[in-house]
Design a protein around this nucleic acid. Structure first.
Lengths: 230, 230
DNA sequence: AATGCAAAAATACAGTGTATCGATATGAGA
DNA sequence: TCTCATATCGATACACTGTATTTTTGCATT
């Protein structure tokens, strides 16, 4: 054995911290979905044994929480936008785009309360945007309603997107996308309104549809913000 | 050995079908959450070997789809209610109540397109309620917006409920619920609006909050239904 | 240089979804 | 009624999971 092919010395333990761990976990999830995040694979990426991670995170669920919080840092806009409506719209769209970058986010969104610093900062930004425009209770209701909408909308969109991808790229919405199954179902005549919608509906791109629904919800919120602040 | 303690004869294979399997899976999930649904445990409940299930379902994901579709049968109301608003409200509330009966539903809601017969029937009922009140595209947008709202709202509510349960029953919303962590965070002064909301906000019960947000969204929908049908 | 200690690695365990293969029971044909 | 083919079911197996426990290691201090 020459000096050239001397085996790598056993790599000195790389210093670890939550940030590095979470970043690696996010990378893993981006590549292969949440299911690809196993503590063994994650540790391997960090040149560590699996058990080493337990010095930094207590459980896998906690790791997921940290991942979500890390993405919330991407969601938070750098400068505060003009009016409340713009602020809320921006937050919603940024969340959506984050979910398109990190599809696994859709699996976690709304699944657990977001109590990390960045998650709280997003909530803070939402409530701050509404501050002074209505009493606190109305503001909270508004924040919750808007975020309920975009959590649901994002989950639906990602679910849809995955289904399309799984059945092979299908241009038309999902009639022939989901294969003969759907068409057969519709052919039974038990779903007339749905059938009409599928065949006669214009399919708009996901972003527009998201934005439209969001605008409706924001309109609804606007209608309650007329009351003066307490 | 007397006739009395003769061992049970090897139980003849109980006839199986998807319905029985799904019912057992739902029972299991109701008791211990989605995580408690393993093919081994499920098979054991049905006096069968694990592999036997694969004659009826292709994969565990498919089992989950079937479970969701079965619950959609509970969601579908028996008689069609009066106007569109009542119809949509009823569907939302029935979905919520189903999720309170079957908390695991919150984990699955919106996670995959609902293409089963009962899921389709629910979509059909939604669209049918809007039929004739607007053009198809508006109706679809309305249906999607409303269901996005309640999917998100239900997920948040269940997540919140679980968090409360985990930290021990805490009456006050989540300030001291999440233990010292939250209070410490709020004490940093980095979240003034949030702090005010937590301390000065009235905490309303979950059902009311769900209903209120839903009404806002329904108002927004109503504002778009003025246009005559195509 | 020896010793104590903290940190990391190895091992272990109980469980998972699912592929493969061997036994077995059932129905058909002779 | 007996034999054989076939479909069904169970057992076994595999690669992996999250995590508890035990063993080894390397470093700092005496």
């Amino acid at each position: 054995m020459s000096v050239w092919d001397r085996p790598e010395p056993p790599s000195r333990p790389v210093p670890l911290d939550r940030e590095r761990i979470v970043a690696a976990a996010i990378a893993l999830a981006d590549e292969g979905g949440l299911a690809a995040v196993s503590l063994r694979k994650l540790a391997a990426r960090l040149d560590a044994g699996p058990m080493r991670l337990y010095g930094y995170i207590a459980t896998k669920e906690e790791l997921f929480d940290l991942m979500v919080d890390a993405v919330h840092a991407e969601i938070l806009p750098e400068e505060r936008p003009g009016d409340w409506r713009e602020a809320l719209r921006t937050l919603a769209h940024r969340t959506r785009r984050a979910a398109l970058r990190h599809e696994w986010l859709a699996d976690l969104l709304g699944g657990r309360p977001t109590l990390g610093p960045n998650g709280l900062a997003v909530t803070e930004a939402t409530l701050a945007a509404l501050d002074g425009l209505a009493d606190i209770d109305t503001a909270m209701r508004a924040a919750e309603t808007v975020s309920a909408y975009f959590i649901g909308a994002i989950r639906r969109e990602i679910a849809h997107l995955r289904a399309e991808r799984a059945t092979g790229l299908s241009e038309r919405d999902w009639q022939r996308a989901s294969g003969p199954h759907i068409t057969r179902m519709l052919a039974t005549g038990r779903f007339p309104a749905l059938t009409k919608a599928v065949y006669d509906g214009t399919d708009v791109d996901a972003e527009t549809s998201f934005a439209t629904g969001l605008d409706w919800v924001l309109d609804a919120v606007a209608a309650r913000l007329t009351r003066p602040p307490e």
